[in-house]
Design a protein around this nucleic acid. Structure first.
Lengths: 163, 163
DNA sequence: TTTTGACATGTCGAAAATGACATGTCAGTT
DNA sequence: AACTGACATGTCATTTTCGACATGTCAAAA
């Protein structure tokens, strides 16, 4: 289970409310993990009960800002460094890419075009993010990786669509 | 739910037993989807009940070979072409890549090295697969994409490790 | 001949994830 | 003063997934 560790990781970057975490799962982490608020709030409660996070602030509308405790920080480091990663993933787009060879040429081209549009939109979003980014953000490398992978994907999709 | 469609896709390539499908989820599809046999057998039963697959052969040890019906083929095409893909994925490695900036330099280098070893092993496996492959396999393109993405990953990891 | 290991299919309880339901606050507009 | 929409937190039934348990076959090696 790594929703737990994804939350710990996000809180390590910046103490946040459940609502804010929910936004991060839709934004920065959208291409790596997805979680609804109905999963996030109970998990925060469990993490708090386990002493890995604590409420450090209460704001308007009953909002609670959580931060890592020392135990939480220790557990996050342990997971990142010592636990063998689970490399199995669930990626519907990759399944589709794998299966598109089953389609006839017209259908295949249609699918490639749809995918290409999506990749181009994501590239644009990443470029925009990079521009508006704090210059000393330690995130530049991750964005760069995303851009490079999207470029490979776009090139491949164009090759396939032309074939 | 797309375990259903992953199974339909694999059966479209070649009629197979549940055991064989289980192997494919560990091999060709390992980097895109994962499913245990305890999920596959019940899903096959549901697909059969729904008339999307049928048993076309019974072999030794009670094995049952399933193949797509016409309805199954129609449903697979419909899903691939007409359904909007669910782009959200669950990728623990990507979460780790995203979070490694939280680590101190020594830990970070350790993690990058581990990841690099994994990428290189996967590249070797793909190269091997390409060599042993039927020259008219329609799979060459997918393998090529995997190799290109792994190359980008390896380059990025080396840059980060040296930093 | 026994034993090992790959082949082969299934069930079941527990855990995780989803989607719908439910409730309320606060700032800004109409 | 009423309304709208973003903010904010929660629960709950259903569906999906996982891991363990359970059972048995068949070929080849010891």
């Amino acid at each position: 289970m790594s929703l737990r560790h994804a939350i710990l990781g996000l809180l390590a970057r910046k103490p946040s409310t459940g609502y804010e975490l929910s936004g991060m799962f839709d934004a920065s982490l959208r291409s790596a993990w997805h979680a609804r608020h109905s999963q996030i709030y109970p998990e925060l409660a469990r993490l708090e009960e386990g002493g890995l996070v604590e409420v450090v602030d209460r704001g308007p509308r009953g909002s609670k800002t959580y931060a890592l405790t020392d135990d939480g920080r220790t557990e996050l480091r342990r997971w990142l460094v010592d636990d063998e990663p689970d490399r199995s993933q669930r990626n519907e787009s990759a399944v589709r890419l794998f299966l598109n060879q089953l389609l006839d040429p017209a259908d295949r081209r249609k699918v490639f075009t749809r995918d290409l549009e999506h990749v181009e939109a994501e590239t644009a979003a990443l470029l925009d993010l990079r521009e508006r980014m704090d210059p000393d953000e330690p995130f530049a490398a991750q964005i760069e990786l995303g851009l490079r992978i999207n470029e490979v994907l776009a090139t491949w999709l164009r090759e396939q669509a032309e074939r």
